[in-house]
Design a binder for these strands. Structure first.
Lengths: 261, 261
DNA sequence: TAGTTTGGTTCATTATATGAATCGTGGGTT
DNA sequence: AACCCACGATTCATATAATGAACCAAACTA
């Protein structure tokens, strides 16, 4: 693990429940020495990736991130293109829909549209999804080599110690099923009571870049609903992939068996 | 300069004219050895801040940036709040308007709204603004200690070797004038033919966080226009600062003399 | 006012970053 | 089709930077 990796790992500590973190907490949560943490934080401060609340001196994500996001969106308008697709899928299914993208060794939610139902699943944008315990993660894994998939699952299991360890075969079976059906299903794993259906989005070079997922209360989830939601999810991912420049044939081939299994 | 600083400095090489960069170019532009550059790039790859075009193997800004941007926007909705203010200012003035935020030692454009005029100034979001050669930079400097201002100007001059060096007194005088008037004006510095009028935005703790600026063709710029645009810019920055939670009195005091000088 | 927590600093120790030389390969040219 | 060149990527001895236990000052708490 390089020095830069350590410094950048501080960024992963911020979340919607923890948007501002002091030096001591930063040090405790990251496991680094306080002096080391300070130096890392200062490097991130200099680059603008973090900034410091002038009152509390606590750290928060910096404005440079917004600039970089604009820059990226200008050249590769992932957000802009995915937003309407997410909304359309939310409209059709009436459930919470989120679009997540792979970033390095993690899968992070980029867009989330919460349903208006009484029992609603709230997905905060910016949420990191474990590879082995979400429909999105499992769907994505089905498009990777088993070697890389195993590496990611290992990382994911290690960084989510609170989750029940998956049976040796669960992940393998889920991936196998997903690669046959073109979508993955996952219920009561990351959180009890939540079920998800997800399928993979490809970019213009045919590489998997993210997932579209529908999340709903598992109490309201059954085989009939699975069937109908999966159809819409697969359709939406195909649509989004094509809008991102992927070839329709390729996308169809990757998600080949469709929902008719 | 720490290792992390070096690695993160690679991010600053990306721009709207250069959205994808290969290893060799990355190495040349950063001045690091190719092997070193590769290791830095790989660290950024692991964190998701960069990603690699699977076809060309060139590097581009990664999807993690979008996730972090959402996270930040959720806790401190700078973009969301500033967007309508930028648009209102663009509407009133009929000129190009941009909102830029300080990030570490740089000033970067977060939102840009291009005018619909025949002679239009196009500001790309993500553009880095030199402190010493833009209205935004000079306005912001007028709210910093002279020690910090000098440090930033030095950095800025060093990283924009193509710009004409400012006279010893130009920056000092411009800052002095800006601190009296509450807005800064800068014409034909960063680019010949472009004039700008900018004023500073404050956050809820009273610290300066960015600037609103109007950019127009310097050929269409005169003292009368300066007066009318400055009034609108100052009004817009006050409005935005208050929407961000700044106290009206404080903001007014900081921009005290208003436009009536 | 005494105690406790927080952000921040120091310096000897140790681990990591660095870059010249090198390799393999895919794209472009003749 | 054969060539070359430029590019991405790797190696390993060397040099440089990261590390953390102890320490300090200031702000908050009781």
């Amino acid at each position: 693990m390089s020095t830069t990796d350590k410094a950048l790992s501080l960024l992963a500590l911020f979340s919607h429940v923890c948007p501002e973190i002091g030096l001591t907490d930063l040090s405790k949560q990251s496991g680094f020495d306080k002096a080391t943490t300070l130096r890392h934080a200062r490097a991130l401060l200099r680059s603008g990736l973090l900034e410091q609340n002038p009152d509390s001196r606590r750290y928060r994500l910096g404005a440079e991130i917004l600039r970089l996001a604009n820059l990226r969106e200008g050249m590769f308008p992932l957000r802009t293109v995915a937003q309407p697709v997410v909304e359309a899928l939310a409209q059709i299914t009436g459930e919470t829909v989120h679009f997540s993208a792979r970033a390095g060794d993690t899968l992070g939610t980029v867009i989330a549209h919460t349903s208006a139902k009484t029992v609603r699943i709230v997905v905060e944008p910016g949420l990191l999804l474990p590879w082995h315990a979400t429909a999105s993660g499992l769907a994505f894994l089905s498009q990777l080599s088993s070697k890389e998939g195993e590496r990611l699952v290992e990382l994911s299991v290690a960084s989510h110690p609170s989750l029940a360890q998956p049976d040796a075969s669960f992940v393998k079976d889920a991936i196998q099923l997903a690669s046959v059906r073109g979508f993955a299903v996952c219920a009561d794993r990351l959180e009890r009571g939540v079920a998800g259906v997800a399928s993979v989005v490809f970019d213009s070079s045919g590489a998997p870049i993210g997932t579209l997922a529908v999340a709903l209360a598992s109490a309201q989830f059954d085989r009939f609903k699975e069937q109908s939601i999966a159809e819409h999810v697969v359709e939406a991912t195909t649509d989004l992939s094509i809008k991102l420049g992927a070839s329709p044939q390729h996308t169809a081939k990757r998600l080949r068996a469709g929902v008719a299994v």
